[in-house]
Computed example of a mutant assay.
Amino acid sequence: MSDVLPEEVTALAEAVGPEPDELVEEMDARAEREGFPTVGPAVGGWLALLARVVDARRVFEFGSGFGYSAYWFARELPADGEVVLTEVDRDELEDARTYFERAGLADRARFEHGDAIETVTEYEGPFDVVLVDNEKSRYVEAFEAVREKVREGGLVLADNAVTAGPIDRTDVLALLSGESVEASDASRGIADYLGHVREAEGFETALLPLGEGVAVSVRRD
């Protein structure tokens, strides 16, 4: 169950969204079994839709785990498209590679082991979609590292914009409102990010309150 929406609403979002395939169902089962955080099929469907809306050809992810969100993106890319997966855990990255190979999508993916913010400096833009899902305290750093590489009309998506683990959305809202509260580093990181993109020149941001919350920022110029 999502901590953002009632279970029935999440189930409805999943029912209306794109149909998960057998590999998505397998990864969902793994996430449930291992307690591994993924965006889930409701948000995965939105990632796929947003990629399709902006006619995405190149996607970059800050933090990919075993490839769940990247797989939703990859299914929407053209044959010559590219999604860049980054992950500090080598085993998880290799699992992602295996999933992509089984799906016949490995030729449209690049698997980068190491720090995502260091990795993005090695890439030139433009990117059509960027997903920020690394350490919450480094979200602003990730955004600044990639913002000039996002094309006009492209998207920067940030997961966990409402909740996840040590993130307290009440604290996030209080911090955004300028209040002084004792909050976790993760909550402060999310509040800093939301405040930063809200004021970022050339970007417009809205919140998708599904899953654990996704901040959607579009580059206007």
Rank of each mutant, 00 (worst) to 15 (best):
M1L: 01
D3Y: 04
E7G: 07
A11Q: 11
A11C: 04
A11H: 00
L12H: 00
A13H: 05
A13M: 08
A13F: 09
A15M: 09
P18D: 02
D21E: 12
D21A: 04
E25Q: 12
E26A: 10
E26L: 15
D28E: 13
A31Y: 01
F36L: 00
G44Y: 12
G44I: 04
L47Y: 13
L47D: 10
L47K: 05
A48T: 09
V53C: 08
V54A: 09
D55L: 03
R57W: 13
R58G: 02
V59D: 06
F62R: 07
S69W: 14
S69Y: 08
A70C: 11
A70T: 06
A70N: 08
A70R: 00
Y71P: 02
Y71S: 09
E76L: 03
P78N: 03
T86K: 00
E87V: 09
D89R: 09
R90E: 08
D91V: 11
D91A: 15
E92N: 11
D95S: 02
A96T: 14
R97E: 06
Y99G: 02
F100W: 07
L105K: 12
A106T: 06
D107K: 08
F111D: 05
E112K: 02
H113I: 14
H113Q: 05
G114E: 00
I117F: 12
V120G: 07
T121S: 00
E122F: 06
E122R: 11
Y123G: 13
Y123T: 05
F127Y: 08
D128M: 03
V129Y: 03
V130A: 01
V132T: 05
D133N: 03
R138F: 03
Y139Q: 06
E141M: 06
E141Y: 08
A142I: 07
A142H: 10
F143N: 07
E144N: 15
R151L: 03
G153V: 01
G154K: 12
V156P: 05
V156M: 07
L157W: 03
A158S: 11
D159Q: 06
N160D: 12
G165R: 08
L173Y: 09
A174S: 15
A174W: 12
L175Q: 12
G178A: 08
G178S: 01
E179G: 02
E179Y: 01
E182Y: 01
A183D: 07
S184A: 14
S187M: 08
R188A: 11
A191K: 10
Y193M: 00
L194F: 11
V197D: 15
E199W: 09
A200P: 08
A200Q: 06
A200D: 01
E201D: 11
T205S: 15
A206F: 15
L210N: 10
L210T: 00
G211E: 12
G211Y: 06
G211M: 03
E212K: 02
G213M: 02
V216T: 15
S217H: 03
V218G: 05
V218C: 09
R219Q: 07
R220I: 10
